[in-house]
Nucleic acid binder design. Structure first.
Lengths: 232, 232
DNA sequence: ATAAGTATTTGATGTTTATCAAGGATAAAG
DNA sequence: CTTTATCCTTGATAAACATCAAATACTTAT
């Protein structure tokens, strides 16, 4: 593993404060691997063997039922996924596949649990991370139950606007097909939803988004911290 | 507080294994209160002052946005709610109101956090509880994104059937209006969804549910552990 | 027990969203 | 630079779901 990777992982909130010796224990058992795009890394319902950390590229978390499939989240560097399954030693609730070519670190679950058992600082970081994850999924549920698909898109664009440093022009971070699934709609309806936002000052050409009338878009989207602020 | 209540709380997974002295610290700052039905106990976006424990009655967790409202969960004795907000010292993401007349214990957030800081066993219980909560909301999201409203109802009925000890006759635990909101549909559509399940051997009269053809209902609902098993 | 109020059901209708089919744009591969 | 494949868009249609209004069934209070 490259020293630069180790640095980056160590700087994650989850690992930042733990004892050196325990961090080293985790690293000793760690694998690092490069995966091509579209490789299924983990599969729903299977036992949980590793805590995954995306170092480069990106990973989709998705779920299948009865022939249908939905994107639950996209994980970008540097962050971990499926911590809850690792801690509870339970099967995965979601599948994961690389979207782009990705570099992934695999920490054996039992090492993570062993360190969790002896390092109280790490245990506290795990609590914070899980509380964060929990709140994030609650926001997702509220978003799905309280808003129409056009409203979800409008608020998604405003979140991206903010993420881009209040830039009224930015690039979509994923293909529209994936974005549609993430937002809980079909690709066809995403196309139509984009058109429906034109009167509120949104232009999308390819992956380039331009918000020409921020005030109108905000008035339509009615964003609220308790759904749309990821830090809240 | 009655000794019987203390017993029950102590027997919750969250408090079962912590040191006596710390449990007593929590109790010292605790309030217990009786609330009439339909009292708003906590309000979304407000600072989080207490960890709540329902001892008797029931509480709805719900959320509002733009004049709409949705039921996120129903909390029944004996269990806690809004642990994540307490631990992160963040505003509530959901509102809560008593559904029936309820007895609620209030543990000041700062006491909970103080004990969390010194009692590692308690901290580990918090992790387990949060991981559980997280997985539960992920299941909710999958349920909403992958299933139609009739499918959600069918699987809900099967979960209740199981919860009632595999009884093909049982009572709905909440009013249909609330159930509809919980399942992400209108009351009108819940009525129609119930009718739509008649061909699969479901009769509902008032709050009494009878499943006369379990095999057919299962074949239609296609339940899966990774969405429908609360212990998974 | 009766009346008033609330919850549920039903029918009619409208909106939202999905599906299917086809055409157009874009990107990767030769 | 062209071909091929993939993705995206558009239109037509259908299904799912919401809304409104009215009727019926429950509850609750008197």
């Amino acid at each position: 593993m490259k020293p630069i990777d180790i640095q980056e992982i160590r700087s994650l909130a989850l690992f930042r404060e733990m004892a050196d010796i325990n961090f080293e224990t985790l690293l000793r058992g760690a694998y690092i691997q490069n995966f091509p795009p579209q490789i299924e890394l983990i599969t729903e319902d299977e036992p949980c063997d590793f805590l995954h950390i995306v170092v480069e590229g990106s990973v989709e978390l998705f779920s299948r039922w009865n022939g249908r499939e939905t994107v639950m989240a996209t994980v970008r560097p540097v962050s971990t996924f499926i911590l809850a399954a690792v801690i509870k030693d339970s099967p995965y609730l979601m599948s994961a596949r690389t979207h782009e070519k990705s570099r992934i670190i695999l920490l054996p679950s039992k090492d993570v649990r062993a360190v969790f058992d002896i390092d109280n600082i790490f245990a506290r970081s795990v609590v914070n991370e899980l509380a964060q994850c929990y709140r994030s999924v609650v926001k997702t549920t509220k978003n799905l139950k309280l808003r129409t698909s056009i409203e979800r898109l409008a608020n998604y664009l405003l979140r991206q606007y903010k993420f881009a440093g209040n830039a009224v022009e930015f690039e979509l971070k994923m293909e529209k097909r994936l974005l549609a699934s993430y937002l809980g709609m079909t690709p066809e309806n995403l196309s139509r939803a984009i058109k429906a936002l034109q009167p509120y000052g949104v232009q999308v050409s390819g992956s380039r988004v331009t918000i020409s009338n921020l005030a109108d878009l905000i008035a339509f989207a009615k964003p609220t911290t308790s759904i749309d602020d990821p830090t809240y």
